[in-house]
Each structure stands twice: as C-alpha cells, then as structure tokens.
C-alpha cells in the first residue's frame, strides 16, 4: 500500500466529513499516535507503518460529527460490532480500510532493546524491524515482535470499508488456530489455572486503563467498578476485588469483544486481560456459531436467544 494513495483517499473523504482520524508520528520514533485531520494541510502528517497500532474506531461512539476513520482489518470489526449494537450511525462514518500485514507490539520491541531510548525505527521490505538506540542497531523480525493477535489474524483486510487503500489480502493463518492458546490453557489443571489468574490479577493496580482503552466498554464514566449505586466492588485493593473487576469487564464483553487487543496494549502491568474475553468468544463460536464484529446483520448472542438452543444441553447433577 502506498502512503500517497492513502493521503489521496483522505483528501477525497475530507470533502464529505468533518474530521478524518488517522495516525501521525508520536513522541518518539517507536510510537505512532492518533491524529484528527480537519484541514487539508494536515493530511501530510499522516503516516502508515506497523507502528500504527491503535484502534481508531474506538473514537466513533463519542463523536457526533461525520467522521472518516482509518481502520486495519482487526479494527474494522469494532465498526461492525458497533453496527450490530446500534451504537453508531453508519451513514455518518466513512471507513477507510487498510489491508494490513501486521503491526508491532511496542512493549515487545522495548523489551528487545532493554527499554533504551529509541533513536530511529526502520522497516525493511523483507519484514524486518531495525531499531536504533544509543547502544547500536537491533534487527528483529516483524513476526517476532508482533502482538499475539497478529499471529492468528483472520482479517488482514477490513471486513467492511468504503475506501480501500491498497489491494485486499487474504489471511494465510489457519482458522483452526485462532483459539489454540485458549484451548491449550484450558487443558491445565484447575489449581494451575487458579494460581495463574491469582498471580496475574494480583498485579492489577485498578487503573482501569484496559477499560478506558476498550472500544466496546460503552459505560464510559458510568462504569460500575467505580460506583456505589450499584455497589458491585469496593475500593479495597485486594485480590477478590481485583478479580471481581476483571470478571465484570469480561462478562460485560461476553459475545461483544472484537479482540482488538487494546486492553492488553494499554495495561501498564502486562496482564493478559484479553484472555478471558477470548475464552468467552471461543464459547460463543461453539454455542451460537457467533464471531463478534464480522457480519453487520448479526445479533450479539447475549442480547437474543433461541427457543431451542441447539448446542446447550441441560446439565445433570
């Protein structure tokens, strides 16, 4: 995909919308940051490379204007999910899709370079990332530092778009592999799993970054994690309350999580927050043949029912 083509599309889309949301260079060479383009002269700020990790569709529900938005394949599912839940007016959104060959996990890159200041980041045509720090250049394969979600990506091309910047790409990843990690984890003993989550959630500092980054967390400032009316969790910083918070987050996203991974990207403690939601998604697939954010006409399974549930059997004692 050429950046020039993307800029051309943005320029065209600008004519019919109030703002286009894209990416520009962030505070250092390793970070891209969202930018809101309202004037033609801002179009030149726009960048596109594997550092463009944020899910820009997250902004859609809070904007009342007519918006153009740049989405990767994974991000596009957010828009479809919004449509299923009636959270956006599709006629007010112009979707600029980018076929994506994978992004990087900034956290993984930083770990590779031992959190040294970043001086320059380059991407080679053969899929390498070259990161320059005061102690020299480090070369790493893009696949090595990709976020987990890229490893099993089924939708490199947006599932829905008005303009596509580039040629559609089809996924080469095995569809059966999508929940392999979840299935593997589930095979562990109950004690192992319990210990795992106790260890992970005990690190939670209840900063709510995961929630704030989540495009599907519609409650915004009304989140019950910080409310007394109703009073589901106290402000106590113990494991029980932390787990309760994460269960609230997971269950409120049941059958809604589009697996954009923003929660995990935002977590300062590196807690695998998306894992519970992906487990639920794997069950949604089995129970209802449902995958969030793929078909705009689908109904999220928790807000509907079948009189005869084909895949739910009565449990016996």
């Amino acid at each position: 995909m050429s950046l020039d083509k993307l800029k051309q599309i943005i320029t065209d889309v600008m004519k019919e919308v109030d703002v286009v949301i894209g990416y520009k260079q962030g505070f250092d060479p390793l970070h891209a940051t969202p930018c809101f383009i309202t004037k033609p002269e801002q179009v030149d700020q726009v960048i596109w490379n594997p550092l463009c990790v944020q899910n820009l569709a997250s902004y859609l529900t809070s904007l009342k204007k007519k918006v153009g938005v740049i989405v990767k394949g994974c991000d596009s599912r957010t828009i479809v999910q919004f449509m299923q839940e009636g959270l956006i007016d599709r006629s007010k959104v112009v979707v600029i899709g980018i076929p994506c060959t994978g992004v990087v996990s900034v956290r993984k890159v930083l770990e590779k370079v031992k959190h040294e200041p970043i001086e320059e980041v380059k991407f080679s045509d053969d899929g390498m990332v070259i990161v320059k720090t005061p102690s020299g250049e480090t070369k790493m394969a893009l696949s090595e530092v990709a976020p987990d979600k890229c490893e099993t990506c089924q939708y490199p091309t947006p599932v829905l778009y008005d303009h596509l910047a580039g040629e559609p790409i089809t996924s080469t990843k095995d569809p059966q592999s999508v929940f392999k990690d979840i299935e593997e984890f589930d095979k562990k003993s109950l004690e192992e799993k319990k210990a795992y989550w106790e260890k992970e959630f005990d690190r939670c500092i209840r900063c709510y970054a995961c929630r704030n980054a989540c495009p599907m967390c519609v409650c915004q400032d009304s989140c019950i994690a910080e409310s007394r009316e109703p009073h589901w969790v106290s402000q106590k910083s113990n494991l029980t309350e932390k787990m309760m918070f994460h269960m609230i987050h997971a269950l409120h996203l049941a059958g809604r999580c589009v697996e954009c991974g923003e929660c995990e990207r935002a977590c300062p403690m590196g807690i695998p927050v998306n894992k519970l939601k992906r487990k639920i998604n794997s069950d949604m697939k089995v129970l209802f043949g449902y995958e969030p954010g793929v078909k705009p006409e689908d109904k999220p399974p928790m807000f509907t029912f079948s009189v005869e549930e084909k895949n739910i059997e009565e449990h016996k004692l």
């Binding site: 967390c217 519609v218 409650c219 009304s222 989140c223 019950i224 009316e229 109703p230 589901w232």
Partner: peptide, 15 residues
C-alpha cells in the same frame, strides 16, 4: 443486561 447498572428493577435492585 445493563452494563452500567443504570436501569434497576425496583425492589430487586443490584444493591
């Protein structure tokens, strides 16, 4: 159904 607890059934509220 309500994620933010804003709609409460009186006499059987979450609280």
């Amino acid at each position: 159904t309500c994620p933010c607890g804003a709609i409460q059934l009186s006499h059987f509220t979450d609280n």
